[in-house]
């Protein structure tokens, strides 16, 4: 037997072996990553008990948890709250962030670099630090506890200008000579903004609106502090955590918590999957590439 065919087979076999190993790894990874969610879904349909058990597949399937979630807990209120916050926050926040990132990207003025450096340094402070005084002041205006929704909206949008990096990165990719051509053609800076740049910015506008909408659904820290243990003011994160925060609550509401988790996960996950193209573009085009 000559050596050449052997060598040739060796290369292919080696590749097939490494590919097989990779497939096995990938399948394992996929299973491991998905397991908790599979468990979560199963547990949400468990009827025979509401506390934690040692098995996954329910002995009895039913929609009890889902129904109880709506009738026995304040979940509908939490869901409504979070939805309203998301709606208002997304619109207002988008406007603010776009104004900020557009200005920093395309307008040149004295103090621009200083402004960006100051905001960078401000970002080094833990965000929660400002909560203490904000809570106090908001409570003077009755925007906390049961009235958390407007209070939270205010907190989210007011400082949202600091989150300009991704949008700015996007604007930076539009050639400056478009602005200059328009100005030579007779446009004011305002007209450049509305007639030229905005029509070209659909991707980033959509991205900003959707991320701003999704954020309140996952905020725990601020929402918890402002709602201050008043159920009527909680968002879904704080509310669901409350459902399992004490041992008594845990045994009574665990499966309802699972149902709540599923209900919140579905819409957000769908939104994120639609968004992921923009997310990668935004992060790699802006923040990551620098």
């Amino acid at each position: 037997m000559t050596t050449t065919p052997k060598k040739h087979m060796g290369l292919k076999a080696k590749e097939r072996l490494s590919n097989t190993i990779i497939y096995i790894l990938l399948i394992t990874i996929s299973i491991v990553w998905l397991i908790p969610f599979i468990f979560l879904v199963f547990e949400s349909f468990r009827v025979e008990s509401t506390y934690q058990v040692g098995y996954v597949v329910p002995k009895q399937f039913g929609l009890d948890n889902y129904i109880n979630l709506f009738t026995k807990t304040d979940f509908p209120i939490w869901f409504k709250n979070t939805f309203i916050i998301g709606l208002f926050a997304s619109v207002i926040q988008t406007i603010i962030v776009l104004c900020m990132s557009y200005t920093l990207s395309r307008l040149r003025f004295k103090g621009r670099k200083l402004l960006m450096n100051v905001m960078l340094v401000l970002g080094f402070f833990p965000g929660f630090l400002s909560m203490i005084i904000l809570y106090k002041v908001l409570s003077w205006f009755n925007l906390t506890s049961a009235n958390s929704v407007p209070g939270l909206i205010l907190v989210y949008v007011a400082s949202s200008g600091m989150g300009y990096y991704v949008s700015k990165g996007f604007f930076d990719t539009i050639s400056r000579s478009l602005d200059e051509a328009a100005r030579v053609d007779g446009a004011t800076r305002f007209q450049v903004f509305t007639k030229i740049i905005m029509p070209l910015s659909k991707p980033i506008v959509i991205y900003t609106i959707l991320t701003a909408f999704m954020a309140p659904w996952g905020d725990f820290m601020f929402a918890k502090y402002i709602s201050h243990a008043t159920s009527a003011g909680m968002n879904v994160a704080v509310g669901l955590q409350y459902l399992i925060s004490t041992p008594q609550n845990l045994s009574a509401y665990y499966t309802m918590f699972c149902a709540g988790g599923v209900l919140v996960a579905i819409p957000i996950t769908i939104l994120f999957m639609c968004l992921q193209r923009y997310y990668v573009e935004g992060v790699t085009g802006g923040a990551v590439k620098g």
């Binding site: 050639s175 000579s177 478009l178 051509a181 030579v184 053609d185 007779g186």
Partner: peptide
């Protein structure tokens, strides 16, 4: 620029 009554052709057309 718009008040100077000039026109400009850019290198990358813009």
């Amino acid at each position: 620029p718009k008040d100077r009554d000039i026109s400009m052709v850019f290198q990358n057309y813009a």
